[in-house]
Structure formats: C-alpha cells, structure tokens
Computed example of a mutant assay.
Amino acid sequence: MSILRLLTCLVFLLTTRAYGQKQIAITVDDLPAVSKYATSPESQQRLTQKLLTHFSAFQVPAIGFVISGFLQTNGQPDPRKIALMTMWLDAGLELGNHTFAHKDYNLVSFDELKADVIGGEQVMKDLVQQRGKPFRYFRHPYLRRGDTPAKKDSLEAFLRQRGYREAPVTIDNSDWLFSRAYDHALILNDTALAANVGKRYVEYMGNCIAYYEAQSDSLFGRPISQTILLHANTINADYLDDLLTVLKQRGYSFVSLDKALTDEAYQTVDRFCGKGGISWLHRWALTKGKKGSFFKGEPEVPAMIDELANRKL
C-alpha cells in the first residue's frame, strides 16, 4: 500500500471515529397529507397510519411540518384532520410550523409571509404544547428563504424573535413529483404502472442520497449528519419502508433533527440569496465560491414520471 493511500485510509478512520456512524434526520413536509388519491378523511387516516407504522418499525424519530390551513374545512378547524396530527403526537414524534397557506416567499412580501408564519401556529402550537412538547422548528415553503438580502435577513430575525429555529435540508429531491405520478397511476387503476413508479422512485431516491453524500464529502471532507426532505404523500406511505431500508444499507442511523443539527457543518455561513429553493449543501457551496462543475450530476426525474405527473386526467 502506498504512503498516500495509507494516509487517506487513516484520515477516513479518524474521521469515522470522531463523528461515529452516519446519521440522518427524516423530515416530512405538508402535513397532514398531500395527495390527489387519498382525499377522503378515511384515506388520509390510512396514509398517516402507514407513515407512522414505517417510522415505528425503523425507530425513526421523524419530525413533521404542518400546513395549518390544511387542518380546516370550509374555513373552520376540522376535528378529523386535527386528529391526524394527534396520531403523530401519540407516536412520540415532533411537529413544526410550515405556515398556514404555504406561500412562496419569492411572490409575497415579508409582511405577508410573516402573517403566514403566525397563521401556521393556529391550532398546532397549543396542541403540541399541551403535550409538554416544543413547537420550535420552522420549515420554509419551497425551501425559499428570501431572494434579496433584506428579505432573507428580515425573515431570519423574525423567526428568531418568534422562538423558531430554521429546519435545513441537505438531501433535496422531487418525491412530490413521483407521488403525483403515483397518484395518477392509482386513479387510473393501473397497478402495474403504479408499481413501476414506486420502483423508479426508490432508485431515484437512492441516487439522490449518493449525490448529496458526495457533495458533503467534497465540501467538508467527511460525512455530515444529513437532513432529508420527504412529504406526507401517497408514495411515501407505500414505499417509505423500501427507502428507509436503502438508508440503513448505506450505513445510516436515524436521529432527531435536534441531534443532526449538533453537527458543526450546520454552523456554516449561508449567504445565498436567490429565487431557488435549494439544498443547504448548495447554499454553503455557493457561499464558499464553488462554481458550476461542483454541482454537476444531480439526479434527474425520468421523463415518463414527469409526463405521468403532469398528465391531465
């Protein structure tokens, strides 16, 4: 073995020993559910129970981010939808704020988004705190933090004042697009097509995980504690066990968002201001001056998935 290779192996071993097993926090957006197929209260309850069963089987301390407007029917709180959030709490999982109406910060003013953040506390803040749990994390709609320095800084200051910590994402992906395609296959009652979408989804997500692992290795010279964005949708209800198996096979243990954020990587400066809702790994890379070649290779959604997702039914 060459001296260079020996030193490389030694550095890897020391890094692994210092930071331990690879860790990942599972974060889930758009609670209680976002599905074109599961639209009735009964089907959304089944979707929620499937997700929770997967988390329990793999001992995942997931956190869900709630769109409080989704908890209403005809402008009034809907006890059946609120009960879905109680299921999450009964499972011992944490919940956070994903605003009231999921407004795009690129399209609204700071004052309008501020009102949306406060609206996101309706029902949920009391529900969570009655359990003696904190309502402390905020997830940005579309991962957009502000397309100008003024908007970004204003939102950061407001969230701190409100007692929130921003919930970052390192492993970004288009699970929502696969789930829309999957919903369409189910609506068409085409079980073979749905199974094909599910298979392609798990493959795609494995590629996304590998890509962002490589990005973190390039940026920090070591594996970091990752945070992955998923959605409370149909495809995850049916295929989350396969995805969690992939993560286990890649050497990950599942940790809380709180634990993942103790990794010093999350102290990295983020000066990115732009319209894109992008991974924090890419925000940090851009802040560090990385150029186009650094970002090459991000997995793409297959054309057939895109076509099916956007098909008019």
Rank of each mutant, 00 (worst) to 15 (best):
Y211S: 03
F138V: 06
A210E: 12
A195K: 13
K103N: 12
Q161W: 04
R162I: 08
Y164A: 14
G92C: 07
H140P: 02
L107M: 08
K125F: 09
G96P: 11
L186F: 08
T170F: 10
R144N: 05
Q161R: 11
L159K: 13
D126N: 14
D147P: 04
F135G: 09
Q130D: 08
D147G: 04
A101M: 01
N106S: 07
D190V: 05
Y212Q: 05
H102S: 03
V197M: 03
H184I: 00
T191Q: 14
D175A: 00
P141I: 00
D175S: 03
H184M: 07
Y164W: 14
E112G: 01
S109P: 13
N196T: 14
Y105P: 04
V197W: 02
A167E: 05
A195W: 02
D111I: 00
D183P: 09
L143I: 06
L107Y: 03
L113P: 00
L107G: 00
A185R: 01
G163T: 09
E203T: 13
A214V: 11
I209T: 12
N173L: 05
A181I: 01
S109C: 10
Y182G: 08
A167F: 05
L127I: 07
A115I: 08
V123P: 00
L107V: 02
A195M: 02
I209W: 03
T170K: 04
T148Q: 13
D183V: 02
L95G: 12
R200E: 12
V123F: 10
A101C: 00
F100N: 10
L95R: 10
Y182C: 10
A157G: 00
A150H: 11
A214K: 13
N189W: 04
C208D: 10
L93Q: 04
N189K: 15
V202K: 01
R165K: 14
K151V: 00
D190I: 06
K151E: 02
K103I: 10
L186W: 10
R162Q: 15
N106D: 08
N196S: 15
R144S: 00
L186N: 15
F135I: 07
